[in-house]
Computed example of a mutant assay.
Amino acid sequence: MREGVSVVPIPATREAQRSRGFDHGASLAQAVAEYLHAPCARLLEPPCAKDQRELTRGERFANMEAAFSLQGVDCDFHIRNVILVDDVFTTGATLFAAAATLRAAGVEHVRCATFARVY
């Protein structure tokens, strides 16, 4: 794996974390990071958005607009290459919003990995 790549999970909403008792996305990202011998960096706060399961494609993109913020990042932020990990790809709204937040913070290259695709 190229040096300087960090694996970043899409965090579950706080409600989903409470319901499940854990953050399944963080668990997936940690497994990917271990496999790649790369650090796992929890850079994103849980999204401020409503559940998307019943939303249309357009509603999902609107729902995720500005839904993410960074956590624990200071002015010495230096991560430039990220593999963004999510469990399911439906419309891409979540990945687009998270990637935009990371790019705004200075991440140069964002690649995405998901484990399922819903049509």
Rank of each mutant, 00 (worst) to 15 (best):
M1L: 12
R2L: 14
E3V: 08
V5Q: 01
S6I: 07
S6V: 10
S6M: 05
V7C: 05
V7E: 00
V8T: 03
P9Y: 05
P11M: 10
T13S: 15
T13L: 14
R14G: 11
R14I: 12
R14Y: 07
A16F: 00
Q17Y: 11
Q17N: 09
R18G: 11
S19E: 14
S19A: 12
R20K: 11
G21C: 15
F22L: 11
D23S: 03
D23H: 02
H24W: 08
G25N: 14
G25I: 07
S27I: 12
L28G: 02
A29F: 03
Q30M: 13
E34S: 12
L36A: 11
L36P: 01
H37S: 11
A38G: 03
C40G: 03
A41L: 13
R42L: 13
R42T: 06
L43W: 01
L43C: 05
L44M: 10
E45V: 06
P46K: 14
P46M: 11
P47K: 02
P47C: 06
C48W: 13
C48Q: 15
A49S: 15
A49H: 03
D51I: 14
D51K: 09
Q52T: 11
R53M: 04
L55E: 04
L55Y: 01
T56E: 10
T56L: 04
R57S: 02
G58Y: 10
E59F: 01
R60C: 02
R60W: 00
A62R: 05
N63A: 07
M64D: 01
M64C: 06
M64P: 03
E65C: 08
A67P: 09
F68A: 03
F68I: 07
Q71F: 10
V73N: 05
V73I: 14
D74V: 07
D74P: 06
C75V: 13
D76V: 07
D76R: 08
F77L: 09
H78I: 04
H78S: 15
H78K: 12
I79G: 10
N81L: 04
V82S: 03
V82Q: 05
I83D: 01
V85T: 05
D86S: 08
D86A: 12
D87Y: 05
D87R: 04
D87G: 04
D87N: 07
V88G: 02
F89K: 00
F89Y: 11
T90C: 00
T90N: 00
T91R: 00
A93Q: 01
L95N: 00
L95W: 01
F96R: 01
A97W: 02
A98F: 02
A99K: 07
A100Q: 13
A100W: 00
A100S: 14
A100F: 02
L102M: 07
R103Q: 13
R103T: 15
A104W: 03
G106F: 13
V107I: 09
E108Q: 12
H109C: 09
H109P: 05
H109S: 14
R111H: 08
C112I: 13
T114A: 06
F115D: 06
F115V: 06
F115Q: 08
F115W: 11
V118Y: 04
Y119A: 15
Y119S: 12
